[in-house]
Design a protein around this nucleic acid. Structure first.
Lengths: 202, 202
DNA sequence: TGTATATTTGACCAATTGGTTAAACCAAAT
DNA sequence: ATTTGGTTTAACCAATTGGTCAAATATACA
């Protein structure tokens, strides 16, 4: 079977797999060709250069992440629910794509401007959620913390442990993947609890 | 002037500057030689290979960070003070060496085992601070959160914003360095406040 | 001064890598 | 069957890069 799919898709799949797990510079055009089972020149035939191919992958990856970011930054659901939902969907996304955090982080430092543009084009606009937090403060439902600090706290608590997986694994979980996964799973509720205790006015 | 210092130090300084700001693979031996004002072959004369040279820099960098980690993970000072001290010294360290987080993070993903060994050899042992937290819980001075979650929270809140500087700058601070620095400076007290509110029993 | 030892240099090498090109292949239309 | 157009391939190229080496230079020592 697998009568041979669309060659372009063959390339995209191979490139995605390798770019995400090894990054831009460590992934060689020859590797992508091998992974796709085709000739190297074909890569240049379909996509002009390595950079163009990489960019195609970037867009593809971000179209996957976009909905999560949009619901977090944009939708008008209650604040604490929003946090819980964000933590949960983000963690699940990373579980399915373990190399995503490193990939995004590397790309972010390689060309920040491009990434920021993608973020913005995908609907990331902190103003809405910042306003929402200010509202909650004047409501008297949460303590008077700087909304920007609060926003960064949420992102930190959610994203950092996944980025720092290797070091945490080595130092706190004896390199046991199961233990680490359980820890992350528990985090889904812990982060919401922790933030609730920190900001809720009794 | 500059009668020419010890050649070895010349190399180490040049290599440190370039490795830290551009990473291992993007830094070329020729660049290091140019930066040091010497011939490329001399690099191989003093340090056998690029890897050996890089390792020397790694050790150097970590000897700078070691004291901070040791006082956080090791010393027996009161818990909240410890957090405040850690946040403050860590942020100040990064302000002096802006490329350190990216450098460490990259190296961490490049060869986690080596980094973990360095960490351990430098005195990072989470058991002590975890025990300290358990103690505080049984004391009844802080709420009954899982100490591991708490530890990761502290690290996340402190380290993540510095790692994520480019994206935060672009999305929340209009790429204004001054604004961002002020935000980070305020974080020194905010993190301690935030954690206090979250874990302290009234 | 002459000689051994350590340092420095320029030229060179082999491997890797992104990219190019001319020719071969193949399916559909004439 | 032949032409035509897109597709695929093998061979090749130029640039980069970590590393080597023999010769040159400086330094110390007798």
């Amino acid at each position: 079977m697998s009568k041979q799919k669309n060659t372009e898709e063959l390339i995209l799949n191979a490139a995605k797999k390798l770019f995400i797990s090894h990054g831009l510079e460590k992934t060689k055009m020859q590797q992508i060709a091998d992974e796709a089972g085709i000739n190297k020149a074909l890569l240049h035939y379909y996509f002009r250069s390595k950079d163009k191919l990489f960019e195609a992958i970037l867009e593809d990856v971000f179209s996957e992440i976009a909905p999560i970011l949009q619901s977090f930054f944009g939708e008008k659901i209650p604040f604490l629910e929003k946090i819980g939902y964000f933590v949960e969907t983000y963690i699940d996304l990373i579980k399915k794509n373990p190399f995503l955090p490193e990939f995004i982080f590397n790309e972010l430092n390689r060309s920040p401007k491009r990434m920021i543009n993608i973020m913005i084009s995908v609907g990331v606009n902190p103003q809405i959620i910042l306003d929402q937090m200010k509202q909650e403060v004047t409501n008297g439902s949460i303590k008077d913390f700087d909304p920007k600090q609060l926003l960064v706290n949420i992102l930190s608590l959610t994203i950092f442990p996944l980025i720092a997986k290797p070091i945490l694994m080595g130092i706190m979980f004896e390199n046991d993947d199961k233990l680490f996964n359980q820890f992350i799973e528990e985090r889904k509720t812990h982060i919401k609890d922790f933030i609730s205790h920190a900001i809720l006015l009794k």
